[in-house]
Amino acid sequence: MSHGHGHSHGVDVATLPTASRRTRRILTAVLVPAALLTLVALVVLWPGSVRGEPTAADGERALGTVVAVAEQACPADAPQRRCGAATVRVIDGPGAGTDQQVDLPQGPGTTALHVDDDVVLLHFPEAVPGGRAYAVVDRQRAAPMIWLLVLAVGVILAFGRRRGVSSLAGLAVSFGVLLLFVVPAILDGSAPLLVAVVGASAIMFAALYLTHGVNVHTSVAVAGTLASLVLTGVLGAVFTSAMHLSGAGSDDSAYLSVTRAGLDLRGLLLAGIVIGALGVLDDVTVTQAVTVAELTPAATSRWALFQAAIRVGRAHVALAVNTIVLAYAGASLPLLLLIAAGNAPLGELLTSEFLAQEILRSAVGTIGLVASVPITTGLAVLVAELRGEPVRARHRM
């Protein structure tokens, strides 16, 4: 699930009304223990090294450049369309500096090799007795990826300026938590749902405060996001059990079940739901917290303030729900093609394990997203300082 567009992201929260000391104390009493608990859980669950040492049976990776291609006619009964060999100059890895013969790659997803193509090789001299020691397994794509990332960062910085820098810092923290904590901890045998909740909480605290600053409005958004994440996790657990989902409905999950014995695939499914929900939840909660702050000076009562902010939230969440559905549909496009081309009854397809998992993700994520609007709006209204109320000492959080 990707991050939403967010109406609030163009608002400088530093210019919004300040909060009272009472409001600050309430939010601190709630969020500081939650942050400390997240930090303690990170330390306790932090994994060791989970990467296995490569063995001879795995082969060795090498990089090379195609210097010649020699195609030949395929036998009449051959399944492949392109036969022949290519000469690859190994530039890094085992055999660097030598020219090696490789068979032209076959199978689904492979593309034709041409001279000057940069490829990834697997050196496996004992794979086939009397066969070639190298095989092309992928294309080198580091250079275009780096240029794409540089372009994306440049666009963000040019448009967002200071806020762009903070958003990139939040993004770096998010990827760091996912790659250094969530994935290794799950592979290390920790409960996937617990790891996902702790990781999502860490991402939420870091990303929201880095992007929007340490202030009462961001704190309200953090509290609303945390409550909505808990609701999403609970709903996911309940309906995963009610629908008797094993979490092994996809080829990737089936492969993990074989290569990682003991991995909790159902927990892994729930972990994906929680982490995916965070991407849109933080956008919606920040929007609602800032909306309440903007509407507070003109509000006549807390109920009127709540109703006005909810109207804004309805318009925002309608777009966000559409974003969720389209994101899942885009990720599952090959599955949709299989459904359209298949002959199985629709009811049977919809209740199959794999498609049921996708429906669960979409439905639970949508419910959590919709619930985040009244939850965050209610919290923001509770701590809002309306005109006509007793004046208290105001301090920026």
Rank of each mutant, 00 (worst) to 15 (best):
G176R: 00
A207P: 01
L171K: 05
A206G: 04
G213Y: 07
L168S: 05
L180S: 04
A185W: 05
V195E: 01
A196L: 04
F181N: 11
V182A: 12
V177G: 03
G170N: 01
V173Y: 03
V177T: 02
A196I: 07
S174G: 11
M204K: 04
N215H: 09
A185Q: 08
A206H: 03
A191M: 13
P184D: 13
L178I: 07
V182T: 09
I186R: 06
I186H: 03
V173K: 06
F175H: 11
L193R: 06
G213M: 07
S201T: 12
N215C: 05
S201A: 14
S190Y: 13
S174A: 14
L187N: 13
A206V: 02
H217Y: 11
V197W: 12
H217W: 13
F205W: 06
L194H: 15
V182S: 08
D188W: 13
S219H: 15
G170P: 06
A206W: 02
D188Y: 10
V177Y: 04
H212V: 09
L168M: 09
G176N: 00
P192C: 13
I203L: 03
D188L: 11
L178R: 00
G213N: 09
V198G: 13
A185P: 06
L178Q: 01
G189L: 09
S201I: 09
N215M: 05
A206N: 05
L179F: 12
V216K: 07
P192R: 08
L194S: 15
M204I: 07
L171F: 12
Y209N: 00
V195G: 01
S201R: 09
V198M: 14
G213Q: 06
L210D: 02
L193N: 05
F181Y: 11
S174K: 13
L168F: 07
V173C: 06
S219K: 15
L171V: 13
L178N: 02
V195N: 00
A202Y: 03
V182C: 10
M204G: 07
A202T: 03
H212W: 10
V173G: 04
L210I: 03
A169C: 08
L210W: 04
V182L: 11
A169G: 08
A191E: 10
A172F: 04
A172S: 09
T218P: 10
V198Q: 12
G189T: 14
N215A: 07
G199Q: 10
Y209G: 02
L210V: 02
L187I: 13
S167E: 08
Y209E: 09
V195R: 03
A169P: 04
L210R: 00
V214E: 11
V216D: 04
S167C: 10
G189I: 14
N215V: 10
I186G: 07
G176A: 00
F205A: 10
S167I: 10
G176L: 01
H212R: 06
G213V: 10
A172N: 04
A207E: 00
S174H: 07
L208K: 01
A207I: 02
P184T: 15
